[in-house]
């Protein structure tokens, strides 16, 4: 597995002390040894990163003969009865999909999961913060029934007509520990960053082969840029160090000012913008240096 410490963390929204993360990973039928290996690698990565931040009993992996429709629907029924609105839910579907013009199916042993099934169990969950990632072929059909602002929805294709096995999933999960996927260098890989990284890799792949792309991934949901999927090198801040807490708070304030400046950029002359940006960045850098001194130089 990967050398870096990777944790899967979903945060950003103010949460109550009892808010929990529930992760469901569904590995569908593979059809060939090659896809079996590929899908297994991806779900293993996922399980590994979730285990470090979520209780084992809140992580459910369905694969092989256990990944039946009855089992999966039963799981979500239980989940619906267990979780609260403050809890967070991530669902990852790794496998092959199909679309006959009417219905999408995610291929599992026995009866397949349909788009109606998926919409049914996702909509039934009370959790206000949801993530659904489906890396299968034809997964774009889910955009018709599952798109809403509060749910981050990522599909490997833009519609049901993109029926070939996708490459998106491989690159998406590679982003979780890839420094070049961390565009804003905050040591966190968000859903948007992982998606952007994967899309670029898919595009580069087809261009390098001199082929037209057979898949076009889609993302929706207003919180994709804040929905963190993985953090590289995170250490939990020590809550009994007042100086550290103060510095982190100061850093957050500077972050807000930087964001405000960026929003105001079009109203400023170029040089004025750079001057203000420089001033804030110097402040931020100095605060970060102090944080590093307090924490002993660890990434925070």
């Amino acid at each position: 597995m990967k050398a870096l410490l990777i944790t899967l963390l979903v945060f950003y929204f103010p949460v109550s002390a009892s808010a929990e993360l529930y992760v469901t990973i569904i590995q569908g039928l593979d059809g060939t040894p090659h896809y079996n290996q590929q899908f297994s690698d991806q779900t293993e990565t996922l399980k590994s990163v979730t285990e470090s931040i979520a209780d084992n009993n809140r992580i459910q992996l369905f694969f092989g003969e256990d990944a039946t429709r009855d089992n999966i629907l039963s799981h979500f029924q239980n989940l619906k009865n267990t979780i609260t609105a403050q809890d967070r839910v991530s669902v990852f579907m790794v496998g092959h999909g199909s679309f006959d013009g009417y219905e999408y199916k995610f291929n599992i042993p026995g009866p397949d999961l349909t788009d109606a099934d998926i919409a049914g169990f996702m909509d039934a969950l009370p959790a206000e913060i949801q993530l659904l990632v489906n890396t299968s072929s034809a997964s774009g059909v889910l955009n018709n029934s599952l798109k809403n602002d509060s749910r981050v929805l990522i599909t490997a294709t833009r519609n049901g007509n993109e029926r070939l096995a996708t490459r998106f999933g491989e690159y998406f999960f590679n982003a979780f520990d890839n420094l070049s996927a961390d565009i804003n260098k905050n040591n966190a890989i968000t859903a948007q960053e992982a998606f952007d990284y994967a899309v670029r890799e898919v595009t580069d792949y087809f261009e390098s082969q001199g082929q037209l792309a057979t898949e076009h991934a889609e993302i929706s949901g207003t919180h994709a840029s804040q929905f963190v999927l993985a953090r590289i090198g995170l250490k939990e801040p020590s809550s009994d160090d007042p100086e550290l807490t103060r510095l982190i708070s100061e850093r957050s304030e500077i972050d807000v000012k930087i964001e405000e400046l960026q929003l105001n950029k079009s109203n400023l002359q170029a040089e004025e913008f750079l001057n203000q940006l420089q001033s804030l960045m110097i402040d931020l850098s100095i605060v970060q240096e102090k944080i590093d001194e307090v924490t002993g130089g660890d990434e925070l």
Binding site: D182, I183, N184, K185, N186, N187, D255, I258, Q262, L277, Q278, M281, I282, L284, S285, I286, Q288, E289, E299
Partner: peptide, 16 residues
């Protein structure tokens, strides 16, 4: 660099 990634440590250090 910092406009895109304000927390980019190497860039912060270079700026200083």
């Amino acid at each position: 660099a910092l406009e895109i990634a304000p927390h980019y440590r190497p860039a912060q250090k270079l700026l200083l």
